[in-house]
Simulated assay, not measured.
Amino acid sequence: MSYQKEWLLLEANDEIDEMEHRNPSEEYQFYHAVASGNVDYVRRNCESGRFSQEEGVGQLSRDPVLNLKYHLVITTAMITRLCVQSGMELEQAFRLSDFYIQKLDDLHSVNAVCQLHDDMVMDFTKKMRKHLRNDTNSKHINAGKEYIYAHIKERITIEDLADELGVSPSYLSRLFKKETGTSVSGYIRQQKINMAKNLLRFSDSSMIDIANQLAFSSQSHFIQQFREVTGMTPKKYRDVSRLNPWED
């Protein structure tokens, strides 16, 4: 009997695994967190042991160790693809992927596979964070970008940023414009909109919740700012992006 016929009989006789699978948006959010270098998010996911939790992940093998190995291969392949799309060198990404997948040959316990998973995703995430922040800007600008990244859910003013860096607001404003081609406020807005995009794509948060979470003054202000940057409303972006969650 061919595999196709076997599957059709199993499906028709209702003998297939009826376990419900996780919402794909959860996986997409995790993969994009790795590709965007979001170390804190990925570390929290690892610490929660989400990879080893069986609910909703599907059974690829009756052997628990082999089952996790298959899932790790899938995860590695997905992460590799997104990291390349986000700027990681193609050869580096695939060599890193091959390295971790080959390590599976020597592992024979669930705990060991889970630890390899955590090491793999953190390695990719840290490399992406370094890549996305590795530019030729001065130390003040790079430190400013790090501060903005770490406080993106707060209201950030140029005075706050200048005080943090120990320079005057006027000096920081001139330097930021010279080295990045945009104003401090423009850069902060862009980073908040980028975060809003992820929330719109991968969460069910309402517009007002996202506006509050990212410290916009109001929902209407959030919608206005989002439209100015992206050319569409947040609702339109959510509808369009969910048709293809892999695209930026």
Rank of each mutant, 00 (worst) to 15 (best):
L8S: 11
L9S: 10
N13C: 02
I16P: 01
S25G: 02
E26F: 10
Y28L: 14
V34I: 06
G37D: 09
N38F: 03
N45C: 10
N45E: 12
E47I: 12
S48R: 15
R62E: 11
T75K: 13
T75I: 05
T76I: 07
A77T: 12
M78K: 09
I79C: 09
T80I: 04
R81K: 10
R81T: 04
C83G: 05
G87T: 06
G87W: 08
G87R: 02
M88N: 03
E89L: 08
Q92P: 00
R95E: 14
I101E: 06
D105S: 10
D106P: 00
L107D: 00
L116A: 00
M120A: 08
F124W: 08
H131W: 09
H131V: 09
L132M: 13
R133N: 15
N134Q: 06
N137R: 07
N137S: 12
N142T: 09
G144H: 12
R155M: 01
E159Q: 03
E159W: 00
E159H: 02
L165A: 02
V167Y: 04
L172M: 07
T182Q: 15
S183K: 14
S183N: 11
V184T: 14
I188M: 11
N194L: 15
F202H: 13
S206W: 06
S206E: 06
M207W: 02
A215Y: 05
S217T: 12
H221M: 06
Q224C: 15
V229Y: 13
T233G: 12
P234S: 05
K235L: 14
V240N: 11
S241K: 15
S241P: 10
R242E: 10
